[in-house]
Amino acid sequence: MMPPASEGETLLALDLGGTKLLIGEVDSKGRILHSKRYPSGMLTQRQATELMMASLDDYLKTSGLVGGKPAAMGVGLIGLVEANQGRWLMIDPGRKEEIRLAELLERRYGYPCRVENDVKAAALAEQRFGAGQGISDFIYLNIGTGIGAGIIAEGRLLRGWQNDSGEVGHMTVDYSGGTPCPCGRFGCAEALASGGGMDRRLRLLGQRHPDSPLLNLAAHGFVSAEEIFTYAEADDPLAVKIAIDAADAAAELILNLVRVSNPERVVLGGGVAGSAWMRRELPKRLKLPVMDSVRHGVVLSDLDPAAAGLIGAAAVGLGAQS
């Protein structure tokens, strides 16, 4: 269970993503008192650790602390994290270096510190401040550039022995389509329904639709899910194929997860899940008896997407007090 929060206390929060680092101070109700953004990019773990410390030094010097001395520090990180021991194990298989990050930050700044994977941190934010409040069993499913989940079971975050639970984007949802996934399998939900997967699919399927305007976009870089959905609404055949398959895959993933963990609620986060296309198409695919047990329904996160990572890091910081 989440530890109690004292009225008036604040948490120092760091949210490290693939393109940015957010640092801020968050109060006991999940309200961001002040924050500052720093660019990150394609870094090694060591480089990212140095960036976090240099940026935090700058933040404390230039922004200061609104609430005096924070009760604790929380960090949300991309990649694999061993939270109980405060170790950041890897960003991805090509960027892998064990760093005892919580211990390092505690020594440098003097605050109790806890670190966590960013999606698990978001699940803790939903439990503490969002759509998971008062619910003992729910799934937080993030469908964005990639796909990941945080599963709360009997009030506790499900971790697995390596703290690697929730990698649900690599559950196969399409056995016949032959869509390759970077993980080495075929038909994974992430290969079909994530923003990154949809961009890769348009390049794979583009030769069958040489007149699609999506190919012009692809020639100039990454094509977002929102762009693909916009062209799907305009009946571009390539976009329609990718968009329908994405909605089918996301629905199948939700149905599978419901059967595995029997949640009271499914909370959706991430830019793809929040798109108008998915908000319209997903409910059509979830009108099945298996969903009757989800008594509090499938809902979009009501946490501000731009701030959810920072709020999640604050929720992680609360665990440093227990």
Rank of each mutant, 00 (worst) to 15 (best):
A243V: 07
A273R: 04
E252M: 10
V267H: 10
A234E: 15
S261V: 11
G195T: 03
V258Y: 03
R279A: 08
R279F: 04
A218T: 01
G206R: 07
D248Y: 13
S224G: 03
R185L: 15
H209F: 15
E252A: 10
R200T: 08
G184F: 02
L255K: 15
N216Q: 09
A189E: 08
S293K: 12
L217A: 08
L214I: 02
H220P: 00
V266C: 05
A193L: 03
Y231C: 08
V223Y: 01
E233M: 02
M278T: 05
E252S: 13
D199M: 03
F229L: 10
A276R: 15
G184W: 09
P210C: 13
L214S: 02
Y231D: 12
R201N: 11
T230G: 09
A189M: 10
D199P: 07
A193Y: 06
V223T: 05
R201I: 09
V266E: 01
L202I: 14
T230P: 00
R295N: 13
R265S: 07
G270N: 11
G271E: 05
R265V: 10
V290W: 07
P213R: 02
Y231T: 01
L282N: 01
P263I: 02
F222P: 06
G269H: 13
D245A: 15
L205M: 08
L257H: 06
L204V: 14
M198H: 01
N256F: 05
V290F: 12
A251K: 03
E227L: 08
R259C: 12
L255Q: 14
A225P: 01
L257S: 07
V266G: 01
S212R: 09
V272Y: 02
R265C: 11
P263R: 03
R285Y: 00
A225F: 02
L288M: 14
L202M: 10
K241A: 13
W277Q: 04
G270R: 06
P213V: 00
A273D: 07
V294Q: 01
G195W: 00
V260W: 11
I242V: 15
D245T: 15
D235F: 13
H296A: 07
G271L: 06
S275Y: 01
L202K: 07
E227Y: 02
A250M: 10
R203C: 01
H209G: 11
A273N: 09
L192T: 03
M198N: 03
Q207R: 13
A250R: 04
R280V: 09
A276Q: 15
R259A: 12
G274S: 14
A247R: 03
D211C: 05
L282H: 01
V223H: 01
A239F: 13
L192M: 11
E252N: 11
R265L: 06
S275W: 04
